[in-house]
């Protein structure tokens, strides 16, 4: 589904992704972790080309992303992206946020798109907030609307870039619950997160990044119990005692 072959990226002189090789299969849930500045956000932002890279190959659902002539609009419609800061459209209601892309990209009739949006909002537990504007919602609610917005396009892949990092602690659970449910339904997911509980519970694989390199990868049980590298061990001890 997602295939990185020797991907390298530089921001000016800074080498932010170093020879990334990674293969994510359909239905797999991959958690990417690592210290800040390790390149993990950049990595998943490459998957729908919010970031370009200079060297290597990346195929997403068979589409070559290293080829800049690729029609991104079409591919992006198949990939949901959830941001740390939600980025809901502030001038629209929750319902309008969710229905916008189905109406304009999938060319659905307004009534059908709104029915779909109601269904997705219901799925994230916000059926009663359809007419609320983002400013009237808590952070956790906003993030769940953002997830519903992604799901409304029936994506093949969902990407999450630190979806709970901007939330107050008491709201993290409600967002993770939605994500756990999604994972259990077989969605292909790449999640950048520090929520190791989530990783343990649903990840098929944990990837540890440091300084732009993919340092270690393994199933969550082995990764937490027996990290193979010192850097991973240090990282785990830090976040677990945290």
């Amino acid at each position: 589904m997602i295939k990185f072959n020797g991907v390298n990226k530089w921001f000016g002189k800074l080498h932010v992704l170093k020879d990334i090789d990674l293969h994510v299969t359909s239905g797999e849930v991959v958690v990417v972790c690592g210290p800040s500045g390790s390149g993990k956000s950049t990595l998943i932002r490459c998957i729908n080309r919010l970031e370009k890279f200079q060297k290597g190959e990346l195929f997403v659902d068979g589409t070559p992303l290293h080829d800049y002539s690729t029609n991104l609009t079409k591919l992006r419609a198949e990939i949901g992206f959830v941001f740390q800061q939600f980025h809901l459209y502030p001038h629209m209601t929750a319902l309008q946020n969710v229905a916008l892309a189905p109406i304009n990209v999938r060319k659905m009739k307004r009534a059908d798109a709104e029915a779909l949006a109601h269904e997705k909002l219901d799925r994230v537990g916000l059926a009663d907030k359809a007419d609320a504007h983002p400013t009237q919602l808590s952070g956790g609610q906003q993030q769940r609307v953002a997830i519903a917005r992604g799901l409304a396009m029936s994506p093949k892949i969902m990407l999450f870039d630190e979806p709970t990092s901007a939330l107050d602690p008491e709201m993290i659970g409600e967002v993770l619950d939605v994500m756990v449910k999604l994972a259990s339904e077989g969605m292909t997911m790449c999640v950048v997160t520090h929520e190791m509980g989530f990783a343990r519970q649903v990840a098929h694989r944990v990837i540890f990044m440091d300084e732009g390199s993919l340092v270690e990868t393994g199933n969550p049980h082995d990764f937490f119990a027996n990290p193979q590298t010192d850097r991973a061990a240090q990282f785990i001890s830090k976040i677990l005692t945290h």
Partner: peptide, 19 residues
């Protein structure tokens, strides 16, 4: 982030601007 959210959901440039 608004541009990123809009383009990530598959809207083309005109739709991103318009909506």
């Amino acid at each position: 982030g608004q541009w990123e959210a809009a383009s990530s959901s598959g809207l083309n440039l005109y739709q991103q601007l318009r909506y």
